[in-house]
Every structure is written in C-alpha cells, then in structure tokens.
Design a protein around this nucleic acid. Sequence first.
DNA 1: CAATCTTTGCAATATTGTTGCATCTCTTTA
DNA 2: TAAAGAGATGCAACAATATTGCAAAGATTG
Lengths: 143, 143
Amino acid sequence: MESATRNNALVEKLESRSIKPTAMRLLVLEYLVQKDEAVNLSDVEQHFKNSDRTTLYRTLKTFEDKGLVHEIHDLSGSAKYALCADDCSCAYPEDVHVHFYCNSCKKTYCFPDRSVPSISLPDDYHPVSGDFVINGVCPTCRN
Amino acid sequence: MESATRNNALVEKLESRSIKPTAMRLLVLEYLVQKDEAVNLSDVEQHFKNSDRTTLYRTLKTFEDKGLVHEIHDLSGSAKYALCADDCSCAYPEDVHVHFYCNSCKKTYCFPDRSVPSISLPDDYHPVSGDFVINGVCPTCRN
DNA sequence: CAATCTTTGCAATATTGTTGCATCTCTTTA
DNA sequence: TAAAGAGATGCAACAATATTGCAAAGATTG
Ligand SMILES: [Mn+2]
Ligand SMILES: [Mn+2]
Ligand SMILES: [Zn+2]
Ligand SMILES: [Zn+2]
C-alpha cells in the first residue's frame, strides 16, 4: 500500500539515525519531510494541535541530537529545524550549507547545494561548526 | 583633560550617527568601546547595576537602528551587540564581517577584516544582509 | 516661559526555551 | 507469562529573554 510504503521509509529514516520510531516521531518526521522550509516549535505545535508542547520540543531535540535535523538560528528569534540530507553528518564546513531567511514572510530555506565557504581564522581559533544565514526577500514575497 | 577629550570623542561618535548624547548613552558607548567582544543585554545590565533594564535595552536598540552597532545572533540564545567601524554602513556583503562564537566561554568576537563571502543564490532571492557565525573554541579556552 | 518632543523608569506582559516528575508503553528477561 | 527495566509521553511549573504602555522627568524651541 501507498501509505505503508511511505511509512516504511520514514521508519527506516529514523532507525538509520538510531531513533526509535514512535507514533509521534513518525508524524513529526512526515511533517518535516513534506515541508520545504525550516520549521520552529510553534509551527509544529500548530500543526499538531492536540499534542503536547514538551513532547514536540523533545522530539525536535532528539532529532537534532541524533543528526536527523539541523538547527538554524535566524533573525526570527526562535530556533528552526530542517531535515539533514541522508548522507549529512553536519561536518564543518563540507556538510554545512547556507540558509536564506526572508525578512518579509519570515520563512527560512535551506540551500543544500551551497555549502558554507571555509574562512581562514587566526591559528588559535578552532572552528567546529558554522551558521551562515543570508537575509533578504524570497521569490514568493518579491511581488 | 584626558577624560574630557575621551568624552568628546564619544559624543562625536554618537552625533555622527544622529544619536543624542545623553549621559546613559555615553556610558553605554564607553562600555562598548572598551569591550573587545560582543555584549548582550545581561552584560550591560550587570555592568550598570543601578540602571534600568528597559533603558539599556532601548539604548542598544537605538544604537542598532542608527547603525552604531550591529546585532549578532549566535548559539548563546541572546542577541549580542558590537560597535560598527566608523565607516561601516552594514552594506552586504562588503561591510558585513564574520563572527566567532566560543562554545566554551560563550563569548563572541568580531573579525572586522574578514568580510562575509558573497554567495550566489538563485536570481529571485534578493539578499539584503547576512550573518555568518563560526562556532568553536577561542584562544583563551584552548588551554 | 509655555509648548513640544525625547528620554527614562517602572510595571506588566509576551515569547521562547527548559526541567522535574509521575505515568504509560514497549521490550527484555527470569 | 509475570516482573523488571528502559525509554517516551503528558502535565505543570519555571527560567530566560524580549517587548510594550504609560506616566514622569528632562531637553529643546520659539
Ligand atoms: Mn538547512
Ligand atoms: Mn561584528
Ligand atoms: Zn518571503
Ligand atoms: Zn572561549
């Protein structure tokens, strides 16, 4: 069946990151998969109106801890999350890509094919990760 | 006198950005000048223990609105501020530089001589500004 | 000086992020 | 299969940060 197959793919996605595929986690993952923009906790809350805020919060944190999603800090003031590519291990700078934040609609988009440029720093600064967010106006808001 | 001269420079700095040089603003500016790292509202509050939080908050916002400081969003969870160079108008990408956030001491440093690399985006994305924060370990925390 | 505009102080509130703990659920094991 | 254990969930409380309304104080201008 359609939905059984899809569900299987989701289960596998979770298990590939050592996350137990509970009902809630599968639903949140499904939500993330079909979104083409990064989501924050409020977004998830509003989509799952009956679910508990804390569970959703911890679901996202678990996803992040296990490397299934990456966290994005843009100018919106709340942390957003987006799915990592299957082969992503968030290694810096190769695996880390640029994000675009729209000042108008407040949406944040991933640019998986634009990995962050590597910046040379003084020797005694040891980079571990990086966040590069470009702010501006997105195609939809261009008018 | 020493302090009169210094004070004059501070007044000029404010006036060059069309900010009225009130007592509080001069003090906050003086504080920012002598800091070599970005500061958040709590930092300022703790330094000016008797001053009102809101006034300090609005002072920083005013400074930002007038282009005297730039706001930095790092992984610390609170917005930080740092003085702009005299000739900075925060134009992207030329005037915007890279920041370094230390995961250990939570301090954020400006790298004024490393302007953010310009990233090519699809034509219909219109960049206006950018935030590039590199996270890692700073020289002091290296041990 | 009076009128006006800006800044400041205080209080209240909004928003986001986080934790403790009891309960539930699923899996393991005797 | 029953008991034990581990992990997930739900609820409540709380912490931290950001923001606003409004009245009083201060500065500016004619
Ligand atoms: Mn992304
Ligand atoms: Mn800076
Ligand atoms: Zn937009
Ligand atoms: Zn450090």
